[in-house]
């Protein structure tokens, strides 16, 4: 448990004149379910894009399981991008075949079990799905993978309550045991906070507060109330 899944040291990422991350330093231990929390524009998505090698930092260093991020480390990461959609012409079944082909560690049997649990039929087409159903499909594509790191960028955004509940149930079911690290960014802290056993609060590209969720609870109270005090 002492090993780190992700280490960021003095990372600065700039978009034009705006700093998305500013001398950002963070260490995420392995095997935790980490809530990456903060308002819009606080740098959550940028952090994830840097971890997955989608963009590069101007300064500082990032290590994913001890390696520099890039397409090679993406073999070890299941990543749900923010505002992602799925290929409209794919059915659930075809999406699973796609994942078997392209996503390392994807397990078809697990995916089908999750699909059943989350009420998705194999012959539904992504193009005809509700946002919630599509979100469930994409979540399955991420969590049905046997990889050490799972990153979910706003998995609950714009989704109906039932889908949210099913996604949470699917996550809980799949997080049990192992040294898998799960990073989840979300606005809906209230519903998701009991999922986390580690929480990091970001603001304007910096870490405001971070640590073991149970310790944070005993020190400051509920995580959503910490959020309210921090960003007042």
């Amino acid at each position: 448990m002492s090993k780190s899944a992700i280490v960021c040291q003095n990372v600065t990422k700039q978009y034009g004149v705006k700093r998305a991350l500013s001398e950002f330093t963070l260490e995420i231990p392995q095997g935790r379910v980490v809530g990456i929390l903060g308002p819009n524009g606080s740098g959550k998505s940028t952090l994830f894009r840097l971890i997955t090698g989608l963009t590069r930092a101007e300064q500082g260093s990032i290590h994913v399981l001890g390696k520099l991020p890039g397409w090679r480390t993406n073999c070890d990461i299941a990543y749900l991008p923010d505002r992602a959609r799925w290929y409209a012409n794919h059915t659930v079944e075809r999406a699973f075949r796609w994942a078997e082909q392209f996503l390392p560690g994807f397990d078809r049997a697990t995916a089908e079990r999750l699909a059943e649990q989350m009420h998705l039929e194999l012959d539904m087409r992504a193009g005809g799905m509700s946002r919630g159903q599509e979100a469930r499909l994409m979540l399955i594509l991420c969590i049905a993978r046997d990889v050490p790191i799972i990153i979910l960028d706003e998995p609950f955004a714009g989704i109906d309550a039932i889908s949210r509940e099913r996604i949470i149930a699917g996550l809980i079911d799949h997080m049990s045991g192992g040294d898998r690290t799960v990073l989840i960014s979300t606005h809906e802290i209230h519903e998701a906070e009991a999922l986390f056993d580690y929480a990091v609060f970001l603001d304007e590209g910096r870490v405001l507060l971070g640590g073991d969720a149970e310790q944070l609870r005993s020190q400051y109270g509920a995580i959503h109330s910490i959020q309210q005090t921090l960003y007042r």
Partner: peptide
């Protein structure tokens, strides 16, 4: 964990 909707590590 499923029934309480909380992190399995916490239950563990």
């Amino acid at each position: 964990a499923q029934a309480l909707k909380i992190n399995p590590n916490t239950v563990m």
